[in-house]
Design a protein around this nucleic acid. Structure first.
Lengths: 341, 341
DNA sequence: TTGTATGCGTTATCAA
DNA sequence: TTGATAACGCATACAA
């Protein structure tokens, strides 16, 4: 008899061991009020029969599923891949299951993913979503299962959140370039306007202001947050007059693309133009030159977020509900002192 | 009243619309035997109340959860990241949920992940596992939920499988090098012995034999299937006498590592040594030089596997239960005609 | 220490 | 076309 077609239930064990279903349940869930002998006997029979509790049934009566939903835009993006790994690890250690959904950057898909997760009654939601400020999202945050936002949050949101301090991170990047003598520093942002791009732009502006460099809107361009986006925008960057000597991009993939685009145009990195990325994904360590970048604590963000959610679900005391982790600069080969200013 | 703490049930709708729970159920699941008017009315009230069916309850009575389990070793590996995306997309389109588990290469973690998925009563399992030939795995394949193996399968396994033709792929790589005039071709394999490494080694040997080149065991070395593994093994490759003019690695990450290691030793790729990888992950397109590789149809493997599983769960006719997809060669900058033989 | 009864939210079976 | 009633597998309150 195949276990899949006919899984053994508490009832089966009860019959096989001559006690009631109730007793079996208590024996297996390790309750105190049960005779040690019967407990052992029942446990033996259960394992003999290959018993596996039906978590659906348990969820129905307990009102909790011991599962978490995670929504990301794209799990092939190294940033999200690392985030997923961190979350999955915490879940696994806490005996929670992780239901993964991908929005692919589409609001429609994101919405249907959230519906499905809601219907599946996940105990909590971890969201690193496309558009975090939509009415539907606000409704979900107010009425849905407990949620923790990762990396992005809508303006005015005060709930559980874990992410990087994008302003501080961006300032690190720009300061590094300033210290290398660069004055004409371009910034590549994204058309998404998800929140972190705004913060990074603000950090860029703030740090320039600190150095008494006048902000020039011509030095800010926008491109998709991908390698291809960066590659394509390289020509635009080179066309800016006067030509920038350094570029700070929204993220590492863009930065890699910019380096490739510059290289294709015969412009050397870092001799002619310095490039700084943001994220700190592994791939930045194998490009030529290796990418100088502002590294986020991706693993920590994922772990902290998942732990925060689980702790709150299990009514454990939680230290901080809003966690803005500092980013740090990794100086590698794509930046150098300015030559021709 | 928060939807999360007190979700609306069929009972609530029944009370609000003055019909029985049963009628509500049929109205919402779109059954035929119901009055069109009451159906519409019930549906309106349901959406008004923000009703979301409890999939746990439905699963309990229907004996199916509409969820799939996916087990991979490491979701940050680009290969698995792409696999996950493909699987998730198919699941999402079929209104299935995807429960993701990571084994991190540990048998113990893999076992507990499988237990949890079993208890959660996923309808089917997609496995791209560490050790596929263990007794526990055999037991699971025989007695557990319907499963489809991805990329690897134990010797003698005849069940559902989707993966690449590793022998054919490896032969493509070696043939390419032979055509470039290389005779001393080293191979980097892995210590894992998971199955695909054996096949790639066999393809390497077979293609050499076809060219009447005697197999030399000294030309086969073993390293972890990571960038670091490749980087470290580079020195070993250079120490082989006579020195190989080309290297075919188990996978792309290793190949990238080998290129970095060779570069650090002052050996130029492809002028001094040609390098060919295996997998076809995106990162091979941004290295310097870009990596020549044998590309697997990763997206297709994931989609086909997920579709195969869902089709079989829904009793749809399935064309083939074993799918060995061909790999294809992508020639880029890391290979060139042999110079000094 | 154990057993009985009840309910979780849903679908399925059978009468009406 | 509808409504009672009974499951699904488990945990819990209460009784014994």
């Amino acid at each position: 008899m195949r276990a899949s077609s006919n899984p053994v239930t508490l009832h089966d064990i009860a019959r096989a061991s001559g006690v009631s279903v109730n007793t079996v349940s208590r024996a297996l869930t390790g309750k105190a009020d049960i005779n040690a002998d019967t407990k052992l006997r029942v446990q033996q029979i259960a394992s003999q029969l290959g018993y596996r509790p039906n978590l659906m049934a348990r969820a129905l009566v307990q009102g909790r599923t011991r599962s978490l939903g995670l929504v990301v835009t794209d799990c092939t993006h190294p940033f999200y891949a690392m985030l997923i790994r961190a979350v999955e690890d915490v879940c696994s250690n806490a005996a929670y299951s992780l239901v993964l959904s991908t929005s692919s950057g589409s609001l429609e898909r994101e919405a249907s993913a959230l519906h499905l997760l809601t219907e599946r009654r996940v105990d909590g939601l971890l969201l690193a979503p496309v558009q975090v400020g939509t009415p539907q999202m606000r409704d979900l945050l107010a009425n849905g299962p407990p949620s923790v936002l990762l990396t992005r949050r809508p303006a005015g949101y005060e709930g559980p959140f874990v992410g990087s301090d994008n302003v501080q991170g961006a300032r690190l990047a720009v300061r590094h370039l300033l210290e290398l003598g660069h004055h004409r520093i371009a910034h590549v942002t994204t058309p998404k306007a998800g929140g972190s791009d705004v913060a990074r732009l603000r950090g860029y502006q703030t740090e320039l202001a600190t150095a008494h460099i006048k902000f020039d809107a011509d030095f800010v361009v926008s491109a998709p947050e991908t390698i291809e986006g960066g590659r394509t925008i390289a020509a635009t960057l080179l066309a800016i007059k006067p030509r920038p000597t350094a570029v700070f991009t929204y993220n590492d993939l863009q930065a890699i693309g910019v380096m490739l685009g510059l290289g294709a145009a015969g412009v050397r990195v870092p001799q002619d133009v310095s490039v700084v990325g943001f994220d700190g994904i592994d791939v930045g360590g194998i490009t030529a030159p290796q990418l100088t970048t502002v590294a986020q604590q991706i693993d920590r963000i994922g772990r902290l977020g998942a732990q925060l959610l689980i702790d709150s679900l299990e009514k454990r005391p939680i230290a901080k509900t809003t966690n803005l982790l500092p980013a740090h600069l990794i100086v590698r080969g794509s930046t150098a002192a300015v030559r021709n200013r």
